[in-house]
């Protein structure tokens, strides 16, 4: 079977893409990994900084809790939207889907910029709050973790809704009808039937959102205003200002390995293929 597959003309079709990605993408990535153990000297000296350097640990800590908080909020709110979409009529569903896809495809830069205009001290939200007399001074929404989390949740929600919607649609509605028929109230039917069945989908969405949050760059930079330094921003600083390639590539490699490890674990325990593409 494998011998025949190797000779298959279908293999020729995948060759151009595989060659381009292999030579011009995978090799550069591997060089980054290699630099992390060879610059400035061969060995794991750069990685030792993970254990000893307080700044790096603080940045890693910030990254982890901001991403964790983002993930919880995103998946929680995304669940509400996906749940409503699954139970909505056709028109309502399509309308919601269009709004979600529009936000999904709208440039992250544009969205974060718009968010900044809403949330900054003389932004619209604060103008509304001041005009309504609810507050005396503008509330600081940007240049801190609040702004970063709001912005990241906003960007991430479509990414959570799409897989959640696919997962929740797979739950047989007859099960809920059966539970109701057997005397369950709507809340009990949800808690004992729908919720447990939706947990695998929720776990998938969490992994996906967390992984993508780790790599976020534009939103924290714009809404954090340099005050909330996440790992990606810190790597850029090492690259642009101090030219410490060893340190920058070590942090990049650690981030990459963390992402791949999480994805590997997730695909072991969850059916991730539904997300990475509806493969044949």
């Amino acid at each position: 079977m494998t011998a025949r597959a190797r000779l298959s003309p279908w293999l020729l079709l995948v060759l151009p893409a595989v060659a381009l990605i292999g030579v011009m993408y995978l090799t550069p990535l591997l060089r980054v990994l290699w630099l992390s153990v060879s610059e400035p000297s061969l060995g794991f000296g750069n990685y030792r900084l993970l254990l000893t350097n307080a700044t790096i640990q603080r940045v890693a800590g910030t990254t982890l809790w901001v991403c964790a908080l983002t993930t919880i909020l995103t998946v929680g709110l995304g669940y509400v939207i996906a749940y409503t979409m699954v139970h909505a009529g056709r028109v309502e569903m399509r309308l919601m889907l269009f709004c979600i896809l529009l936000t999904f495809w709208l440039s992250v830069l544009v969205r974060s910029f718009a968010m900044l205009l809403l949330l900054r001290n003389d932004g619209l939200v604060n103008q509304l709050l001041l005009a309504s007399g609810l507050v005396d001074h503008p509330i600081q929404f940007v240049r801190n973790a609040t702004g970063v989390v709001i912005g990241m949740v906003h960007v991430m929600i479509p990414l959570a809704v799409l897989p959640l919607y696919a997962a929740l649609r797979g739950i047989d509605p007859a099960l809920m009808r059966a539970a109701r028929g057997l005397g369950c109230g709507p809340l009990r039917a949800f808690a004992y039937v729908f919720w447990p069945l939706s947990r695998p989908g929720l776990a998938q969405a969490c992994v996906l959102v967390f992984i993508f949050s780790l790599g976020f760059f534009v939103t924290p930079a714009i809404l954090g205003g340099g005050k909330v330094v996440m790992m990606t921003e810190y790597i850029r600083l090492q690259f642009e200002q101090t030219l410490r390639w060893g340190l920058a590539t070590m942090l990049a490699s650690s981030l990459l390995l963390a992402v791949l490890l999480m994805l590997g674990l997730a695909s072991r325990f969850l059916n991730m293929r539904r997300i990475t593409g509806p493969a044949a």
Partner: peptide, 22 residues
């Protein structure tokens, strides 16, 4: 499939470093 989908998963900053160097 794993190779071709890799660019979706790798954080952008790492791709940026890799492209810059090569």
């Amino acid at each position: 499939r794993a190779l071709v989908l890799l660019p979706l998963i790798v954080p952008a900053i790492i791709q940026a470093l890799a492209f810059y160097r090569t």
